[in-house]
């Protein structure tokens, strides 16, 4: 049997600036290889299931509606039209943790609120991510020596991204959200369960 030969001239040369929709899709890094089979007038997309899952997850992060203190005001400002987190597919703040996969811990976690925050986190379905926002949620902040405030929300739940500030401006929120998207993009399948880290 003759060896299989591939005629590489049939493939499109890689252009530096993506112009067509297909090239733009390839440029996202989501699709590893795009083969255009012109003879069949169709497309073959080659990718890995990790990339598709991660792309789906990072493109529709739904936060749970929870604000603990003044950082929540900045969360509202981030969600409003001027900064507009609908760009990231995040504008749907869910009223139930069962429908959410992201929690902003926005504000002071008092001792009395701490078990409630933990319960909210446990009610969220996997995979789930947590962004700790502001000095209070990160370390306790100005209330670090208080009798009634937890010294960092990472004492009770795992945190993916910390955003410093008191409170952080919406630009800092957007930067933190982009950092989380980068993190999700590079996760392996099952990374949240410690299988493929």
């Amino acid at each position: 049997m003759d060896p299989v030969t591939i005629d590489t001239t049939k493939f499109k040369p890689v252009r530096r600036k993506p112009e067509t929709a297909l090239e733009k899709l390839e440029d996202t890094g989501l699709i590893s290889t795009v083969l255009a089979a012109r003879e069949r007038k169709g497309l073959i997309l080659l990718t890995t299931i990790d990339q598709v899952f991660n792309w789906a997850r990072l493109s529709s992060l739904w936060p749970v509606t929870s604000g603990l203190a003044c950082c929540a005001i900045e969360m509202m400002a981030t969600a409003m039209a001027h900064h507009d987190i609908a760009r990231f597919g995040m504008e749907i703040f869910r009223a139930s943790p069962r429908q959410a996969d992201l929690m902003f811990v926005a504000g002071t976690v008092t001792k009395r609120m701490a078990p409630r925050v933990k319960k909210l986190y446990e009610m969220m379905p996997d995979p789930k991510w947590v962004i700790s926002v502001g000095s209070c949620a990160n370390t306790g902040g100005p209330y670090h020596e208080s009798y009634a405030v937890l010294k960092g929300v990472d004492n009770i739940i795992p945190v993916d991204v910390y955003i410093p500030g008191c409170p952080p401006r919406p630009e800092a929120w957007l930067y933190g959200i982009i950092q989380l998207r980068e993190k999700i993009k590079n996760e392996g399948y099952g990374a949240k369960w410690g299988l493929n880290k």
Binding site: K111, R112, A114, P115, R116, K119, E145, Y147
Partner: peptide, 10 residues
């Protein structure tokens, strides 16, 4: 007594 930390659970 600021040294003994107290925690709340539900």
């Amino acid at each position: 007594d600021m040294d003994t930390e107290q925690f709340v659970t539900i």
